[in-house]
Design a protein around this nucleic acid. Sequence first.
DNA 1: ATGAAAGCGCTAACAC
DNA 2: GTGTTAGCGCTTTCAT
Lengths: 354, 354
Amino acid sequence: MTTSRTPAVGPDDEPSARTSPVTMRDVAQAAGVSVATVSHVVNDKPGARIGDAARDRVKQAIEELGYRPNALAQTLVKGNSKFIGLVADAIATTPFAGRIIQGAQDEAWKNGYVLLVANTDGNEGAEEEAISMMLEHKVRGILYSTWYHREASVPVALAETDAVLVDCFSDSAALPAVVPDERQGGRTATELLLTAGHKRVAFINTTTPSPAQAGRLAGYRDALAHAGAPFDESLVIDASPDQEGGYSAAAEVFAQGATAVFCHNDRVAMGFYDAARERNLRIPDDIAVVGFDDQEVISAHLRPPLTTVALPHYELGVAGVRTLLGLDSPTQVPRQLIACPPVPRRSVGAPADA
Amino acid sequence: MTTSRTPAVGPDDEPSARTSPVTMRDVAQAAGVSVATVSHVVNDKPGARIGDAARDRVKQAIEELGYRPNALAQTLVKGNSKFIGLVADAIATTPFAGRIIQGAQDEAWKNGYVLLVANTDGNEGAEEEAISMMLEHKVRGILYSTWYHREASVPVALAETDAVLVDCFSDSAALPAVVPDERQGGRTATELLLTAGHKRVAFINTTTPSPAQAGRLAGYRDALAHAGAPFDESLVIDASPDQEGGYSAAAEVFAQGATAVFCHNDRVAMGFYDAARERNLRIPDDIAVVGFDDQEVISAHLRPPLTTVALPHYELGVAGVRTLLGLDSPTQVPRQLIACPPVPRRSVGAPADA
DNA sequence: ATGAAAGCGCTAACAC
DNA sequence: GTGTTAGCGCTTTCAT
């Protein structure tokens, strides 16, 4: 029972590979050249003049032996690795973090880097450990991300390498950060309603203090101001940022005679839908609604599909690695704002009196 | 403008760290000992007798210099890395893949391994590239996962290392696989309804051939058989596996006089909810419903919250690395079935006539 | 109890 | 054109 050595393989009499790590020396020997020559052809060195004969023999040897360069050895000698660490406080709780990973992964990949991910559940010990491990693996830098936009207290060890904050920021640590532009998002959401002709646009906002709460409200006011519409305090209604909140806040929305409502997020909108349905009100005919987040599994599948504004998680991940790699000339420092684009679906129409 | 060198750091006059990679030699020098000694205290070697004095000096030097062992160098000399590769065909499309990553990450971590993730969007070229890269980084093995349970055609390069399939399987490549137990899940879902006292339990199944389609149906029949209930073909209704499908299939469910319905997945259930509401039917009083998948953002937030059966993504990830590492004595080969547990919420009650 | 030295697989001068 | 050689940071016999 050698189960513990090769648990995942089939018969042990396979080609070779797993058992015999073919090294550059093996190739050199097989091709009858030196390792330097092999190195040169493998890396296609610009200044390296290698004879066609030798080059061919090397290539063939590589092929036959199934040689793979050892990236770790390369890293060791070159001094810089191709790893980028991503520490996330929750990769499974929401579909959101997944998009950040995806964005970061794609962009890292595009630049020849690989993502080393660590999830920490916000546990400080795990965070320190994860960062240590990444540092020990000589990562090029670390992306520290949270699953919702907030201020974060960043582990000190982050200072030991290049780091960028994704979907969070820190006023104490002077680290570059990329975050969603909540304000522009709030404005965009509101304008979706305003440009459809609505005059009394309610805003169900969360009671939880956060960049989202403040930013979206500011954006709401921006849109109103820009449209020359008055800001009516009684049209902004407080609610918990979930379905229950949207459901309960609906009464007030109707009481205020709003013909449209901007919900703090898609879940709130989902609750609002329920309330509207109970009152036999039709969306968008009787009331127009827009959400926020574009939590696809909700927004795209509500009836009617919800017009909303997307949280740019994928772009956040992309921007995170671009900033880390110094690919973007930093236009906004220290916090880079990523736009929240509108996602028009079917929950917005013109007001009844239009 | 040294932007491209240290784009993500603050002032360049920082502690040191990033600029000066402290090596073991530095520590040795500072402590006035040899690198061998340092190595021994760092690794707390069993057989290494190091004087207390020397040991202390080394520890202090490590502390003062902020030394971190270079994991890559360690790997190079020891021959085996602490990486586990995870290639996924879609990490962002659904919240599901995130949970697989999370499970894999947690379990890998627990065993001193780090996850190297690569997303490929199912693109074969990207897959080959990702696997190459992982191989070059001398990963301990590779987890190949898909975001929904299906047969997969696995890249040949996988054969070069230990590999296990997660949430997919392959009949051609003889690779170990861990997949959800669809059949047991189907049975569990049905029993949730049967034990509540329902006699006519409908099953809205998908028309798409898949392990889920076949497995859940088999489970449905198992439950019926075990309860001594007859299998009535007209109670299984075909539908597309989404909200629209559930909505449309509802008519037939009611026409058949069912008092309970097992929906192929949560989205189907969501559509069914809509249809029930339109008919002014109450869940669970007028009709009991159970879903499948436990797509939390749907199931937990429907009104009433949906009783469902969970797809064990997290556990799939865990089992994947355990199998890879040979931690589990393989009881089921080649395909290991992971249980789909019931998630009781509020959409199931006793039938009206009970 | 501690150190010298030989590599791990690879790259980069620099010889020839 | 191609080979020699000296490391990269570390572990590990084997001396002392």
